[in-house]
Computed example of a mutant assay.
Amino acid sequence: MNRTASIIRMHTNDRFFWLYLPLIILGSSFFINLIISALIDEEGGLYTGGLASIYVYTGIISMITVSQTFPFALGFSVTRKDYFFGTAATAVLVSVITGAILYLLSTLENATSGWGVKLHYFHLPYFSDGPIYEQLSVSFLNMLHLYFLGFVLASLFRRFGRKGISIFFLLLLVVGTTLGYAVVYLEWYKPIGDWLSDQTALGLSAWLIPLILLYGAASYRMLRNSTV
């Protein structure tokens, strides 16, 4: 338990990398869109996908984290188990904090009619629907999913190297192409589209939970068997 807590402290001591930098990236994108929205007269306001930048960064940071801190942590006699659970706990903590910040910004944006210039950056239709617990859950689950997606890819690279991850993406391409062809050939796109249209943002986000658990289990297994 003490070693797991030490991993959490190791990560949280680098608050710039974990928390400040993604907010800086998000803020830069926001202010650019704010200026654009103030300069144009778009009926209904300006809708932007700039919010995605913080989620993309979450996936990137997880891959960087494993490559930079995994060998370092093991050098101080930390077990692979402690490293995994400490890093996973940090990801949960950061996802909760970031999700809360995004909710507050979304609420403020909605209360000010898009910051006075009709900018829809944090408060987006569908994504921001529902009560507070739904909005917080959607942000949290999507952020945690992308973190563990990056985590499992970094663990795959750590375990099998360049050859292993190249084979993985090749297989992923084959499977994705096959499924795409099947959807078109068998005309599954209409029932899939109907099903998606009936789902809420929280309902779709809930499907990420088994994926998060799968990524976590796979990451743990590969880190346990990887070389430093």
Rank of each mutant, 00 (worst) to 15 (best):
D194P: 01
L172F: 15
L214W: 08
L179P: 01
I167V: 14
A217V: 14
L208T: 09
Y189V: 10
F168I: 00
D194Q: 13
G216L: 09
S219A: 14
L172E: 03
A206W: 09
V184I: 12
L214Y: 09
L171P: 00
L173P: 00
V184R: 09
W188V: 01
G216W: 05
W207V: 10
I167F: 00
A217I: 14
A182Q: 09
A218I: 13
L213R: 04
L204M: 14
L213W: 05
V184N: 12
L202T: 05
Y185E: 14
L173Y: 01
L202A: 07
Y185A: 15
L211V: 15
I212M: 08
T177Q: 06
G203H: 06
F168H: 00
Y215A: 08
Y215L: 05
P210W: 03
G216H: 10
Y215V: 04
Y220A: 04
S219H: 10
A218G: 05
L170A: 08
D194T: 11
T178A: 15
W195D: 10
L171K: 02
Q199V: 06
L186R: 12
L202Q: 04
A182K: 08
F169W: 02
V183E: 11
Y185G: 00
I212K: 07
Y185S: 11
D194I: 11
A217C: 08
W188R: 00
L172N: 04
V175E: 01
P191M: 07
L179A: 12
T177W: 08
W188C: 00
V184C: 02
G176S: 12
Y189D: 15
L172D: 02
S197K: 13
L172W: 04
V174T: 11
L214V: 13
G176L: 01
G193T: 09
W188A: 01
F169Q: 03
L204Y: 06
K190D: 11
S197V: 06
G180Y: 04
P210F: 06
V183S: 03
G180W: 05
T177R: 02
Y215D: 00
Y215K: 06
T200W: 05
Q199R: 15
Y189R: 11
I167D: 01
F169G: 02
L204Q: 14
L213Y: 02
L208W: 07
L170M: 08
S219F: 13
L172H: 01
W207K: 12
L204I: 12
L196F: 10
S197T: 10
S197H: 11
K190P: 01
V174P: 01
G176K: 00
L211W: 15
Y181S: 06
L186Y: 13
T178Q: 07
T200M: 05
G180F: 04
L213V: 15
